[in-house]
Design a protein around this nucleic acid. Sequence first.
DNA 1: TATTGTTATACTCTATAACTATA
DNA 2: TATAGTTATAGAGTATAACAATA
Lengths: 151, 151
Amino acid sequence: MSDPPQSLDPVQLGAYFALIEVVGLLRHAVEQQLREAGDLSYVQFQLLARLGDSPTGSHRMTDLADGVVYSRSGLTYQAGLLEKRGLVTRATSPDDERGVTVTITDAGRALLGTVLPGHAEVIDQLLFERLSHDHMRSTPPRSATPRRRRT
Amino acid sequence: MSDPPQSLDPVQLGAYFALIEVVGLLRHAVEQQLREAGDLSYVQFQLLARLGDSPTGSHRMTDLADGVVYSRSGLTYQAGLLEKRGLVTRATSPDDERGVTVTITDAGRALLGTVLPGHAEVIDQLLFERLSHDHMRSTPPRSATPRRRRT
DNA sequence: TATTGTTATACTCTATAACTATA
DNA sequence: TATAGTTATAGAGTATAACAATA
């Protein structure tokens, strides 16, 4: 089925690496913004966004887990964190007693509203405006943290 | 500078979410393959690939950290793991006594050669051939792990 | 003084397995 | 019996701060 030792030509491989790198840098910048603006991890933001996007503001656990590419236990953990902060609610599903329906709260929507503009801005800048590596490189994730500010 | 509460229109936002989701799914599948084929995390693979791609087979720590979007301590950790397995070598840089030059070993190249074909195959399938969500969804990361096989 | 890299540490995240409860 | 979700747990990964050494 796959005789040639490499089924991707250099161009494809290059495209792939470029994609991965761009997304990595983007993700890094976005995570920083989310943390600063709303103390949210990326996964938590994804969950909130998904719920906020739903007409009912609700989803079942499994659906969320699938959408975010997550194990169920991991989702339980994250949903617990969000619930602790009052950003979502968990309740037994009306139709299926086994299921749990997660619903975004007003506070959750409010936080989402707080975080989204800056989030969109980062994406807009990094992904849609200036996609040059140099720009992205100079902005977020230098390995060399500025050490300490001396007086 | 940014008066409208949202600087991204729905189309852009949609494109962004789609991108993130596709990459997430891709990454998940790829990580699984790397783990199975060579017991490598994605970061470790990235490091090896970067070194293997270099004409000299070497890079300095900081360069690697920047490329992979990593903290230096994180890189030290990962490089240590790779070194333990004999896949890379670390030595003081010839020109700068402070620096450390990481070099891929023959074993490292061999492993890379072992892992790459399957890696490329996954990418080829998921990213370049059938980019339909349904396909990707059905393949890798279901939240519901098949529980247990009963006899 | 600034930069390179390592170490110690603390914390977050993630998945696996075992378990309960409902379908 | 299969599915939904939680819990306990264990492990990998990540970053921060402090440190040593060289430029």
